[in-house]
Simulated scan of single mutants.
Amino acid sequence: MFQLGKTLVSEEIIEKDFVCNLTACKGACCVDGDAGAPLEESETQILRDIYHKVKPFLRQEGIEAIEEQGHYVIGEDGEWETPLIGKKECAYTVFDKKGIAKCGLEEAYNEGVTSWKKPVSCHLYPVRITEYTNLTAVNYHKWQLCDPACDLGESLQVPIYKFVRDALVRKFGENWYAELVEIANEHKSSRNK
């Protein structure tokens, strides 16, 4: 780990490669697991505010889950998260014609209906953020479902921090990301010596 401002960053995000491979995984991260997508407190208001715009993009099962449980729920860990459909997929999940799970929130964003892409936790994946009192931990979350993404990333030589560039900038800003790139370049050159 290394410190970058008020963040502690795992070296894995600069050492490991990753590129989502939806043809292999079918968007399983939206479906598998035992909890909804983690939400920041500010995102709970956003979900309430944009729901009427996003609703036409959602499946009936998702709409029913949201209208029964709420736009967001408190998970077993006491943190905010998206509701689930039958303890399985995220209520905001939609499926394309090939059966690939996608985000209904992101579909609305892509169509220009909203200006909010999706929860930052989803945008950052496979990076996970943990907030502490004085520091924020930035870690790589290894999940077997994403083995095809690791393989694709390795074949394309795309490190995690480059794959999630836009999300890291969204979360921490351009200056933070520029410093991360410098650290990554120094790290790479020191390993090549």
Rank of each mutant, 00 (worst) to 15 (best):
L156V: 07
Y125G: 07
K16R: 13
H187A: 12
Y177T: 01
V113P: 03
A137V: 06
P159K: 11
G33T: 07
E111P: 00
G5M: 00
E43T: 04
P126M: 11
A65D: 01
V113L: 08
N110K: 14
V9P: 00
E81D: 08
A65V: 05
R165N: 07
F57W: 04
L135T: 12
A24C: 10
P83W: 02
K162I: 11
Q69C: 09
C90L: 10
N110I: 06
V127Q: 01
R128C: 10
Y125P: 07
Q45T: 14
T130D: 11
E11N: 11
A37D: 01
L180M: 03
T23R: 13
Q45F: 10
C30P: 13
K193V: 10
V120L: 11
K53S: 14
H187P: 00
E107Y: 02
G112Y: 05
C103G: 08
C29G: 12
E111M: 11
E131S: 13
K16P: 01
V158I: 15
I100V: 15
P148Q: 10
M1E: 07
C20K: 02
C30H: 06
C30N: 09
K142F: 15
D32Y: 10
V113S: 04
A28C: 15
L152V: 03
I66H: 03
L152N: 02
D34Y: 10
P119H: 03
L124N: 04
L105P: 02
V113I: 13
V19T: 11
I129S: 04
L168G: 02
I13W: 01
E15K: 14
P56D: 07
I46K: 08
Y177S: 01
R191T: 09
Q157F: 12
F18T: 02
C90Y: 05
K98V: 02
D34R: 10
N192A: 13
H141K: 15
L135D: 06
E79P: 00
K6T: 09
G33Y: 06
W80I: 00
E41S: 14
G36F: 04
K142L: 14
S115R: 14
T133D: 11
E154K: 15
A37I: 13
V19I: 12
K55Y: 03
Y177F: 11
L156R: 15
G173K: 05
I50A: 03
E131Y: 12
L168T: 03
